[in-house]
Structure formats: C-alpha cells, structure tokens
C-alpha cells in the first residue's frame, strides 16, 4: 500500500512572531520552524500502518528549500521518501492554491491513502486536506481521532458536538488528523541518522492562482496583566463584584 502524508513547516508555537514591513506577512527573521504539530499525528498514523503492513510512506510538502527540515523530521520518524514542491513564495499562497498544486502531484503519485494534519498552526485555514479531496473527487473525513483499516475499508472516528461519530470510507481516501489520533513518536537517533540518506525529490511547484488576498495582518491587542484579588472563599464576593461592575460579564 502507498501512503502519502502532506505536511507543512510552520513557525514553532513558542516563537514570538513579528509582522513584516509589508504589513501582510510574517517576518521570517529569528523564527524557528518545525513540522506542523497536527501533521505529526498524520505522520505517526502512516508509520504505524507501515509497521503493521509494510506500506510505503511518502512525505509531500509544498514549501521553500528550508522546509527540508520538517521533511527530515518526517523521514526521521520513519517515512521512506519525500517530495518537496519548491516555491520560495510558498507562504504567500492561500489554501486553494496549495490544494490545487498538491492535488496535481497526488494524481501522479497515485496513493491508496492520504493523511493531512487537520490544520496548519500558522494560517489555521483548516481547508487544504478537504479541498484536495474535493478536487480529486475522493472520500474524506476531517478531524479524525481514531483510524482502523480492514482491506480497503477505513473505519474512523471524529468528535462531534457532544459525541463521537464513526464513519467508514473505501480507499483511496483522505483523512485529516486531530489531536488524540495517536501519540506521535520522538524520532530515534537511528531514524535521525538515516533520514539524510532517504531520497527527497525536489521539483518546482506548479503555479496556481490564489482565490483570496491578504490585505493586512495585525497582532492581537496586548492583554492587560491579570490581578490577584485574594485567596479562597473570602475572595469570592470581591470577584463577583468585579465581574459584575468592572468586567461587566455577569
């Protein structure tokens, strides 16, 4: 079986992002980039299948040359090979442009199973996996928290408001991974040492038009510092008073 995991490199959630001079993009200076955390669940699920049934796992990434770092993380975790669709302006693409480009490549790769993370931690569009399914006409389930495969039928679960939904889909199909799907492994030293020897095919990403345009970006207003009004039962009265009269939320 052939599995493709689509991944994105995103700023580490611990870095403080700055907005670039153009006011519409992030300033890449001083930012640490990592494999998008939701994509880690996607990679882990694919590798678990590889360990169970000997599948071949390919990482597919649209990004700049620097995205090789995230790709290596996937390879170190256990993926077999990777394709990097290179675009030095990858950050300027919206979900539609990314989805169209990935779909084009996926047509050529012909996988039986495709995993995405449910969303990228930087632009939070949460659209690409589902959009690719739409373009390719494949069944898809977003936000899965469990996955089981029997023959060509995948049984998956996702959390819905107040409950859990169980669905089946016949492969080829696309799933986007949510937290809880699994516990992503740390890459082992052996995995890290062998990652560099695994093939990464680099090619220019097809140009696809954006459907939207970013007009401006702004940081959220700084939150005023919290205040301690007391401890235990004695503080309750004062708290209620402040919530009523100062915060006006009660």
């Amino acid at each position: 079986m052939k599995i493709v995991v689509c991944i994105k490199q995103v700023p580490d959630t611990e870095t403080k992002v700055k907005i670039a001079a153009d006011g519409k993009s992030l300033d890449p200076a001083g930012v640490d980039y990592v494999l998008n955390p939701y994509d880690e669940y996607a990679v882990e699920e694919a590798i678990k299948l590889k360990e169970a049934n000997g599948s071949e796992v390919t990482i597919l990434c649209l990004g700049t040359e620097a995205a090789t770092k995230a790709i290596r993380t996937g390879l170190a975790m256990g993926a077999d090979n990777a394709v990097l669709l290179k675009d030095e302006n990858a950050a300027g693409r919206d979900w539609l442009s990314v989805a169209k480009t990935l779909a084009e490549e996926l047509k050529a790769l012909q996988p039986d199973l495709i995993f995405f993370g449910k969303q990228a931690m930087d632009d939070d569009s949460a659209a690409v996996g589902t959009a690719v399914a739409q373009i390719l006409g494949l069944p898809s389930v977003a936000n899965i928290t469990s996955f089981a495969l029997e023959g060509a039928t995948a049984t998956v679960q996702r959390e819905v408001e107040g409950g859990i939904e169980t669905l089946t889909a016949t492969l080829p199909a696309i799933f986007t991974a949510h937290k809880g799907l699994n516990e992503p492994r740390y890459p082992s030293l052996k995995g890290i040492m062998s990652a560099k020897k695994k093939p990464v095919e680099e090619k220019a990403a097809a140009v696809c038009e954006n459907g939207t345009e970013v007009v401006s970006m702004a940081l959220p207003p700084e939150r005023p510092p919290g205040k301690v009004i007391g401890e235990g039962v004695e503080a309750v009265e004062k708290l209620i008073d402040l919530l009523k009269n100062e915060a006006k939320v009660l």
Partner: peptide, 15 residues
C-alpha cells in the same frame, strides 16, 4: 551538522 541539530532539538523536546 543537520543530524546534530535534529538530535539536539529532539532531546530538548524530550527534556
């Protein structure tokens, strides 16, 4: 090297 950096980052995360 790329490997040294990746091992350091992985250990940092485990730590």
């Amino acid at each position: 090297t790329e490997e040294q950096e990746m091992i350091r980052d992985t250990v940092r995360e485990i730590a």
